[in-house]
Computed example of a mutant assay.
Amino acid sequence: METVVSDWKRLAESVIKGHEVTAKEALSIVQASDDEVLDILNAAYLIRRHHYGKKVKLNMIINTKSGLCPEDCGYCSQSIVSEAPIDKYAWLTKEKIVEGAQESIRRKAGTYCIVASGRRPTNREIDHVIEAVKEIRGTTDLKICCCLGFLNEEHAGKLAAAGVHRYNHNLNTSQENYGKITSTHTYEDRVETVEAVKDAGMSPCSGAIFGMGESEMEAVEIALSLRGLDADSIPCNFLNAIDGTPLEGTSELTPNTCLKLISMMRFVNPSKEIRLAGGREVNLRSMQPMALYAANSIFVGDYLTTAGQEPTADWGIIEDLGFEIEECAL
C-alpha cells in the first residue's frame, strides 16, 4: 500500500520541532510496507533519543491478588469467563508486597507495580496497599505504580497522599472496539478513572493491547486517545492469547506489525514513556531488541499470569544495543 509519508526522517524531525502527528500520518506508519520498517524505526529512534537518550526504564509487576475477578474481559485469564488454569488467591500480606520491592531492585527496576485483580478496591484493600507503600517509600527510592481497578476520588487521593507516584489503568482498545472485548464496564469508565488519577496528582499510566480485532485505524485511535488523555506512561501490550480465554487462538500480529505499532505510538506520543509490555516475547520474538529503538521502557520478569523472560536476558539486550538501564538506588 502506498503511504502518505515517504520521508519518515523528515516527519520525525518535524515531530521533534513540535509537530503533532495527524491521524492520516499515524495510519501511514501502521500501513507501511514491511520493507520500510527499518526506515520507520530509525526515524522513531530520532524522537526517542531526543527525549530519552539511550536510557531504558525497567518496571516490575507483583500480582498481589490473582483471579476472582467479576469482569468479563476477553483477553484476561483472571476474568470470570476465563477457564485458564491459573493460580487464584486473595491478597498477599503486606510483608510479601514489601519483599517484592526488594526483588524489584535486584532486577534493576526503578518502578515497582502493585497490581490486583478485581473491578475496584474496597476501603480495606486501599488501606492494605497504603501500609505497604509507606514502608517501601521509607526504605527505598523506588517509584510506586498501582493498578487496582476503577478508582473513585477518595481512593485516588489516599493513594497519592501515601506516596504512590503512578496509577495504571489501560484503555486497552479503541472506543469502537471496546464492546467486543468486554461487557461488564465501558470505555468511558476507564477514561473516568484515568481522569481521577490525574486530578489526584498521580502520574497517569494508560496503554493498549494490540491484536484484539481492532482495525488499523482503531489502533491509531488508541494512540490519539492516549495523547488526548496526556498519559505519561504508555504500556504497549501485544495480545498473548491464553488458552481458556474468549480470545484463545487469536493471532493477528507479526513482529514487523508490532514494530510499526510501537513506532506509531512513539510518533504520536513523542515525549512519553513508551513501554514494551505483555506479549512482547511471543509476538516480537527475536526482534525484541529492535523495538527498543522506539520504546524506552520494558517490564522485566513475569507478568500477571504469564511468564516473561529472565531479567538477565533483558539486561543483555540493553547492553548489546549500547543502551543504559535507569537503576534505582537503595
Rank of each mutant, 00 (worst) to 15 (best):
A231F: 02
M202Q: 01
E221N: 11
S215D: 08
K180E: 09
E192I: 00
T184V: 15
C258A: 11
L226C: 12
M217Y: 14
N177A: 13
A231K: 07
T182H: 02
C258I: 02
N240L: 05
S251V: 10
E221D: 15
E252C: 08
A241E: 03
S183D: 10
G213W: 07
G249S: 13
V220T: 01
T250Q: 14
C258Q: 10
A219M: 14
G179H: 15
K198G: 00
L224E: 03
G228D: 09
G249A: 02
D199N: 09
P255I: 01
S233N: 08
G207A: 07
E192V: 07
A231T: 08
G244W: 08
I242D: 12
V191S: 08
E214C: 13
M202K: 03
D243K: 15
D243G: 12
G244L: 13
A223W: 03
L224Q: 04
E216M: 12
K180C: 01
P204E: 09
V194K: 07
N177E: 13
L226M: 04
R227K: 15
S206M: 06
G244I: 15
G228N: 07
G213A: 03
G211F: 02
P255R: 13
E221S: 09
Y187A: 05
S215E: 13
P204R: 07
S233T: 14
F210P: 02
G207C: 01
